[in-house]
Design a protein around this nucleic acid. Structure first.
Lengths: 210, 210
DNA sequence: GGGACTGTTGGACAAGTGTGCAATAGGTCT
DNA sequence: AGACCTATTGCACACTTGTCCAACAGTCCC
């Protein structure tokens, strides 16, 4: 009845994932339904299942997209510098973003849902590993350049990521029980300690533009 | 029809909370329904709402109970020693427990659900604060006794808690992406660093009995 | 004993869920 | 032009959810 634009399969798949993201951010991963996604997109709900075998798959793919984009954006920003220390500073500037509470909330949802949704677990696991691998790489570069000291890049990377996640978690789930600025400062200081950097160098090198 | 034991209101409330915990551990907080709780308890579902105004209240109270018990058990175990350093070691031995994956999974659920369930958010916030306050107290005792050094007990306590949570999160949500033993060792080493303790003292003082 | 209180039942209710499918309509190819 | 493909619709299906409520039954008091 209504004139609804017909899309190519690729476009439609992307449109569905886009709409799913909007709903996921608004209602949370667990409360995202096929009908909500269809309404958001302005189409019928049957269309969703024409492209995705199950809700699990759709949710995993949508989360994959948003988290992968985040990672890619961070990696892209790192290109702005060749100095290993500054690159690490850029990483910190991108990890906890005050304007992206919903990003951390999605991660909370994903971690909790992982136990019950296999597809989502694989995705969040893979992306967490990728973030940690990125930090490992940053550390190795610094060590190779002689501006950082670290015997166990792998372990230290997990500690940096986990400290950031643990602190951000309190800021998001409990509405600033921990202040975002404190969380950032503490995590940076921890990295400076562990990598034998000068105090505050990660703060001063953060350009913090956006 | 069946002979179902009639309980006093207090007993019944406790029985409902007990059954809710069993279901919550098995299915997750978000997927816990009134009917499941009733079936678990062997009664009708109407009974649940005779005692709890809403599912939100019930879930919050059940989570409150399990998390409060955990905290109380840890506080109880701390009584075993007067030595501040050993008391801190006992704290670490109780925080990440290999045999209690479900405990951390409940915390994951709670943090994620907090955004959508006000009662649950209040509870998890209060308990997170209590855990942090416990660590603050342990640090203050150690500083007062002259066996620890710390300028900002409040900040360091949040960092210890968050590092533990962030690492445990990976171990639970992603099936040992981070090994539990590593998580424990790293968090202990971090505390030893921050509090100017001797390396490995927190490990050697952990009696680890149960 | 009889009455009153209330813990408990079992199902009604409307709203919501994921999934599947025949029918329709827009676009492309020959 | 007609034939064909398939993106899209709109709804049916069976099931689950939280909430509510009239009726039933165990227990205690008078």
């Amino acid at each position: 009845m209504n004139a609804v634009p017909r899309m190519t399969p690729d476009e439609r798949r992307a449109a569905i994932v886009d709409a799913t993201l909007v709903v996921m951010v608004r209602q949370g991963i667990a409360a995202t339904t096929a009908r909500d996604v269809a309404t958001e997109m302005g189409t019928s709900s049957g269309l969703i299942h024409h492209y995705f075998a199950s809700m699990d798959d759709l949710l995993a793919e949508a989360f994959d997209r948003v988290a992968s984009d985040d990672l890619a954006r961070t990696v892209g920003a790192l290109d702005a510098s060749d100095d290993p220390v500054q690159r690490l500073a850029i990483f910190f500037a991108f990890y906890i973003r005050a304007d992206e509470d919903w990003g951390m909330q999605l991660w909370l949802d994903a971690w909790a849902e992982a136990a019950r949704r296999p597809a989502l677990q694989r995705t969040s696991r893979r992306l967490n590993e990728a973030w940690q691998a990125l930090v490992v790489e940053l550390i190795r570069d610094g060590v190779r350049a002689g501006v950082m000291t670290c015997d166990e890049p792998d372990a230290v990377a997990w500690q940096i990521i986990s400290l950031l996640d643990g602190l951000a978690l309190q800021a998001v789930a409990h509405a600033d029980l921990v202040a975002r600025d404190d969380a950032n400062a503490w995590a940076r200081r921890y990295a400076e300690d562990q990598l034998a950097l000068e105090p505050e160098v990660l703060r001063s090198k953060a350009t913090n533009r956006r």
